[in-house]
Computed example of a mutant assay.
Amino acid sequence: MTAVAVGLALGYPLLLVVGSGMAAALVTAVVLVGRQPRWQVSREVGPDQVERGESALGRVTFRNTGRTRTPAVTAYDAVSGQLAVPVALVALDPGGTRFRTYPLPTQRRGRYEIGPLTIRREDPLGLARRSAVMATVEELWVLPKLHPVRRVPSGRGSGHGAATAETLFRGSSDFRSLREYVLGDEVKNLHWKSTARAGQLMVREFTDPWRPSVTILLDNRALALSPDAFEEAVEVAASVHRAAVRADCVVTLALTAPDPGGPAGARHHLDRDMQRLCLVAQQDAPAVAVPTGGASCLVFVSGGESAVDRATLSTLKRRADLVIVVDLASSGEAPGVPYVAATSADAAVAQWNALVGR
């Protein structure tokens, strides 16, 4: 517009032509982008639970519900508010429908929020742009990669103190303790006197003293393992956990340092332990928090000097019939208990199978 004004004031026809062309281009861009097509857009994530490195896809359904042809646009699907995955959507005739699938990142374990899906439109010259949010947010759980653990030793036996609130056997007759109510607990196990005192729902917890009990103690202290080694340790812990559950053991997952970012309760079809392993992070804590209660077998997943600390191992031995140490820093020092030393989850599980599979 300035060029038009200068051209008129000074009598320069060239400036007048250039300015008029620029003004026309700007008006055209605003008209093209300003008209809102009638779209119907939905997005699905499937599967919504995968192991690290497995394939997870977003699937966008794009439908033209208007009477005119919609332009080709690019949509961007946000991943946990950071990475934006571009999705090219073609032009559609009235009533037309198209589907587009695209890979979602699964290289790191964790819970990812997929969305919202944002459609951005701009004119060919890039003079005007418009965005519209078209789809809701969904969840994608990336579990630690699970390796084939053949067997988990059950120790010499099990005791009444072995189980925890996360994995106790429902329906057995031995009362263990009271704990807070979580979704899925049976109403008949509510303890009303304790509920009144605590101001929140409390339930009675029961355990079966005849089932083998396995405690997996994951060292999530920052001083024990490097970030990369910690990821390998999480995969070992998850793999042993799955094998113990499949063997019908009472399984307890414990951490050496409190993790304030862990889940408060089970959500959709994931159990609480797998959620914790999805979300667990390293913490600044100097000492090992030894789990209370006994177990048939206790698996200590740590690294370096922390894995072979005599005081820690002495305390753990008093908590279980059998203690197995998995050292992901591969210090190479045998601490007087069954011992696995490796620098990767693959190698650690291979040594585990050789050690306990005999």
Rank of each mutant, 00 (worst) to 15 (best):
T28V: 09
V18I: 14
N64S: 13
A72P: 04
T61G: 01
G21V: 13
R52I: 00
L32C: 07
R38Y: 12
N64W: 13
Q36S: 13
R35Y: 11
T70N: 03
R67W: 13
R59W: 01
G46A: 13
A72V: 03
L57P: 04
R59S: 07
L26M: 14
V60C: 04
P37Q: 06
G21T: 12
E54T: 01
A25R: 02
Q49W: 04
T28P: 08
A25I: 07
R59C: 01
G19L: 06
S55Y: 00
M22N: 01
G58P: 00
V27R: 10
V50P: 02
D48Q: 05
L57T: 14
V31F: 10
V33C: 02
V45Y: 08
P47D: 12
T28W: 15
A72K: 05
V18T: 10
G34D: 03
A56E: 07
R43V: 02
A72G: 12
M22L: 15
V31G: 03
R38I: 11
L32V: 12
R69W: 14
G46L: 07
V27L: 13
V60P: 06
V45S: 07
Q40G: 02
G66K: 14
A29W: 11
P71R: 08
T68Y: 08
G66V: 09
E44G: 01
G19S: 03
S55D: 00
S55K: 00
R43H: 06
A29D: 07
F62W: 13
V27E: 04
V33P: 01
V41M: 11
Q49N: 08
N64M: 11
G66P: 15
N64V: 15
G66I: 09
G58V: 01
P71C: 06
G34I: 05
T65F: 00
Q49A: 11
E44H: 08
A24W: 14
V31H: 09
R67L: 14
P47C: 09
A56I: 00
L57H: 07
V60W: 03
A56Y: 01
P71Q: 02
D48I: 03
S20W: 10
P37I: 12
E51V: 00
L26C: 11
G46R: 05
R52H: 06
R43I: 02
G58I: 00
R67I: 08
A25S: 04
S20K: 14
F62R: 10
P37F: 07
R43K: 07
A24M: 14
T68I: 06
V18L: 10
R63H: 12
W39D: 01
V50T: 04
V30L: 11
V33Q: 00
A23N: 09
L57N: 08
A23D: 10
V45E: 12
T65W: 00
